[in-house]
Amino acid sequence: MRALREFTKGIIERNPIFVLMLGLCPALAVSTSVTDAVGMGLATTFVLVCSNVSISIIRKIIPYRVRIPCYIVVIASFVTIVKLALNAYLPDLYKSLGIFVPLIVVNCIILGRAEAFASRNGVGLSFMDGLGMGVGFGLGLVLMGFIREVIGAGELCHLRVLWKGYEPMLVMTQPPGAFLVLGFLLGLFNLLHRNLKKSKD
């Protein structure tokens, strides 16, 4: 039961992008299309789950004072695996994600979960926590990618979805659009939280 709760908390209640506000750089940079968003979400989830599990296994051996460098090396190793695998099997995705694949190392969600969760909990719970946080991050990316791609290009997964005469708002696929979409989505999440609290009282 507890494992299920660790999984679901990452999706809405403690969503890494909209509630914890971690990992914002990749969230803005690779949400130009839904395909990129899904790719980045899967890559981050893989690293997050693997690093959470490994850190949870070795948590009792790591000396407290050098724990952060240890975590970083573990995370960087998994990122290198992802980078080589993407380069070999999905070169198009690798190219469009660009430097944000190696930059998964400094994604604060991963180090944050290692420090706050995996270093204190068992392997099973850490696995569920990593999976939940990764899925929450991926869903956030897909939501932003969906809004930006539909409004900015009139497409979804590179297929035309809006009517023929639609003039795409190009700015949405450009950097300013990313900031604006995230700003308004954060506002929306605040509003939802506020209303939820009111209805609970």
């Binding site: 300013p176 900031f179 604006l180 995230l182 700003g183 954060l186 506002g187 605040n190």
Partner: peptide, 11 residues
């Protein structure tokens, strides 16, 4: 949120 919207306008 408003900081992000300002950042968008700056961008």
């Amino acid at each position: 949120p408003i900081a992000f919207i300002c950042a968008g306008l700056m961008s």
